[in-house]
Nucleic acid binder design. Structure first.
Lengths: 246, 246
DNA sequence: TCAAAAGTGTTGACATTACACCCATGT
DNA sequence: ACATGGGTGTAATGTCAACACTTTTGA
């Protein structure tokens, strides 16, 4: 199994989501191309994290490799959501320039397998990152390269459907969280607003969301109860689906 | 845009579902390899319909091309559901023999984009097909090549989730259908049994399932009312999701 | 006249919604 | 003492699940 050369027309892209300051964020890498002669910056924009698949490498492994490189973690939620294979997905001039310069052996028809990843953003801070990597709120995205705007939108859609069937939201929260954080996260991903009392009633029925003997500290209001998610209890008691709505 | 050579490590596979005799079926193609010298048949098995993606071809177009070739139709439901990219997905001896003989230029690491397609099987009869193509009930599948068993399982899972959010079941029925056929189809895909009265109550609320002034003919029992699905009405009245359960 | 599937309503249990006040803390 | 978000219960409404008998047709 060779792991040296890359499969030139196949890549993976990871859409890495985090939750911070009451908003859903996505991890992006700054891309800058300089003129080879003058050194002038030709353009600046952002892309999600991707890389070509290597010869003899499973595509899931390629995605994990990218994830590890950008976040330092490799045991976090990662799932394929869509494959982007239109011939015209690389059509902007700056994308063509970029590829011609950085990957001269690559054609303009690159098929990309999109992966959705969820991380606890308290663990992945921009300053601990690769210097060009930072978080952006999904409703305030900068100029994006390739078809990465479409990819992010599609990943979000995937996420919205998925969190209503599986307990994925906890991947976006610290191990210990409050019910307000949890509610806020749902409201933010699904774009709805939920009644606090009804939300808590529902959570109360979920035995795998467990109150600790512990309270928030240092907040200028009544400190909230702290909860954890137990996958163990979840696996033993799971129903057909995991739905906070309906 | 060249359309001649193929991208050797990328293919599409179409899982084509049909509904017949109260069972969900999948369209498979017989594969037989003969010994080049003796002419003896080395093995016989079945595969879903796939083909390599051509240079300069959108992957969705590649899937439509395969679909058109095998069913004669091209305006039918077709959606990507998963991409299979493990390096060991071609590991059985007969698959290696097959590739060595038929596609000598292809490596053993082929990434395949899986597409799910739904057809009205009354329109796609085995005898009108390519001679080696026929329908198999999904619970009575023959020996399958490559990882096509896994693909079919994954496509089924995709379908089960999807039909609870979108009105796809009608793609599997003739234009005119009875409520019993519809109920039977749900029971069959979802693996549940539904109460007839409750089912009909629910359908009654869906204004886009419309009774015609027409009844079944030639049946040895009370003839059933005939219905059609109106996508037009659906688009104007659709809710968040389309769910026959819950 | 029989067999086979179509068609039809009600009730009790349960789940969902809507809604307002007091509590604990830091500043 | 005040601002901030945490925490709590009930009543009305809507939805779901369970259930049995009559109808229409062809054989």
């Amino acid at each position: 199994m060779l792991m040296t050369s890359l499969i030139s027309n196949l890549s993976v892209d990871c859409i890495i989501f985090g939750f911070d300051s009451g908003k859903l964020h996505v991890l992006l890498t700054k891309r800058e191309l300089e003129d080879e002669v003058s050194g002038q910056i030709l353009f600046t924009d952002y892309t999600v994290q991707g890389h070509h698949v290597l010869e003899g490498e499973n595509i899931d492994d390629a995605a994990r490799r990218v994830l590890k490189e950008k976040t330092g973690f490799d045991n976090i939620y990662l799932e394929q959501f869509h494959t982007f294979g239109n011939t015209d997905r690389i059509h902007q001039e700056r994308d063509k320039l970029w590829i011609a310069r950085k990957y001269p052996m690559v054609t303009n028809h690159v098929v990309s397998v999109g992966y959705c990843s969820l991380v606890d953003s308290t663990k992945v801070k921009p300053d601990t990152q690769h210097q060009f990597t930072s978080w952006f709120a999904v409703d305030e995205l900068p100029l994006l390269g390739f078809d990465h705007g479409i990819m992010i939108e599609k990943a979000l859609e995937f996420l919205r459907v998925k969190i209503q069937r599986e307990p994925l939201v906890f991947e976006l929260l610290p191990e210990k969280f409050t019910l307000s954080q949890l509610q806020n996260l749902y409201e933010c991903i699904l774009g709805v607003s939920l009644d606090r009392r009804n939300f808590r009633k529902k959570i109360g029925q979920m035995k795998f969301i467990i109150a600790l003997n512990e309270k928030q500290k240092g907040v200028a209001h009544k400190p909230a109860q702290v909860y954890i998610f137990s996958r163990d209890v979840y696996d033993r008691t799971k129903k057909e689906k995991f739905d906070i709505l309906t």
